[in-house]
Design a protein around this nucleic acid. Structure first.
Lengths: 211, 211
DNA sequence: ACACGTCGGGACGCAACCGTACCGTCGCTG
DNA sequence: CAGCGACGGTACGGTTGCGTCCCGACGTGT
């Protein structure tokens, strides 16, 4: 029987090593050293570096986040951003995610795993938020889910994972407000802004008082 | 004197190798093989793998894009998106950019080089677009440049470099419209406005003297 | 208590890569 | 034409990692 403590140590070592040197430079020997086990212990459990990383990463990324329904699109977004920001602030995640996304451009297996583990999850979350907003009448029913996901995830991901500039806590509500406005407009792409149209869609969310 | 043809061959080989295996697995020997030159030829020109990549990448990324003034924020954005989309569609760029951004999370030197080569450039472009929009009265003067850049660059980058789902040509105008709306809303978030105050910064005819 | 089966650890052969030292060649100069 | 200096290519020792094999340790069942 495989000893669970050793499996756990390997898992943790893989995450740390992935954060330290990236998938490209990840070596079984370094993982074994860091975990304090032998290579054999790893090869008994996983047959290759790819399988090792895929299994561990999808296990770690598979946990879906419960997302409370605040009753308002902008507040839903702010809640989602807060959760994403907290996840992306973990130093290990912040190192691993961009690295694996870069590697996914090169390795179809990794791409597919991330697709399954992350993007499906995000699509579901995005679909959840959007579905609620449509049900409430905040968004038009024919919203393009792909475009909406880009608008929701892109800015925060860019800031936290790519640009890495510090994000003040008060930036989240502003970003949520902005993204909500983008989503509202994205549903009805042909409409040009007349002030009244813009106002009628902006005012409720800008007004929705929190604090 | 160093032979220019060999230097050129090395440069091209570095880009190809970078796209093929990434920075982490990039080896001088592989570059030399691909370029059809010897390792010595590389070591004579650059002292290390880091210096090699930094010099070549910043040379390639340093070219700034001329951005015509269309006279409208939304159209400026659409034009920018079209340029970005064309750049990110080049297979080599599409492979190298996410890889280096991931590596930048680990290597401060790469981070700083990309900062200088890419983000300063983008900030300038962003600032240009935003400055025009502010001058036209489309945006409030106190727009947060960082947040604005996130909103502009994030969605398209996410779609093209991370999610990699196909982007139909007709999606660009829609994204531009949505991002323009986000920018308009993002200008006045810190103070919670009454609707007519918000209107004054959205309406094209508003005077922009508020502080 | 003993024999068996399974597991982890260390060692081994092999391959790739690093960075350098040396060698032959080419072009310039006097 | 001859000498010199700089260039590119090959060869080398050392290091690291891969994947496998064998051995000792440990727990289990009788």
């Amino acid at each position: 029987m495989l000893r669970g403590e050793i499996t756990t140590a390997i898992r943790r070592a893989v995450m740390q090593e992935l954060a330290a040197v990236g998938y490209g430079r990840l070596s079984i020997e370094a993982v074994a050293r860091r975990a304090g086990v032998s290579k054999t212990a790893i090869y008994r459990r996983w047959s290759s570096k790819l399988e090792l990383v895929l299994e561990i990463v999808s296990a770690a990324a598979g946990k879906s986040l419960p997302l409370p329904d605040t009753g308002d699109l902008r507040d839903d977004l702010e809640m989602l951003f807060a959760i994403m920001a907290r996840a992306l602030r973990h130093p290990i995640a912040a190192q691993i995610i961009p690295d694996l996304l870069g590697e996914a451009a090169r390795n179809p297996q990794i791409a597919q795993t991330l697709e399954t583990a992350l993007r499906i999850n995000q699509r579901e979350v995005g679909g959840q938020i959007l579905g609620r907003a449509i049900a409430r009448g905040e968004l038009a029913p024919e919203t393009d889910l792909d475009l909406a996901v880009d608008l929701i995830v892109g800015p925060l991901y860019w800031r936290l994972a790519v640009s890495r500039s510090p994000l003040a806590p008060e930036d989240l509500p502003r970003m949520a407000t902005a993204v909500a406005a983008a989503l509202e407009v994205a549903c009805q792409p042909t409409v040009r802004f007349e002030p009244d149209t813009a106002l009628s869609s902006i005012a409720p969310s800008a007004e929705s008082g929190r604090s």
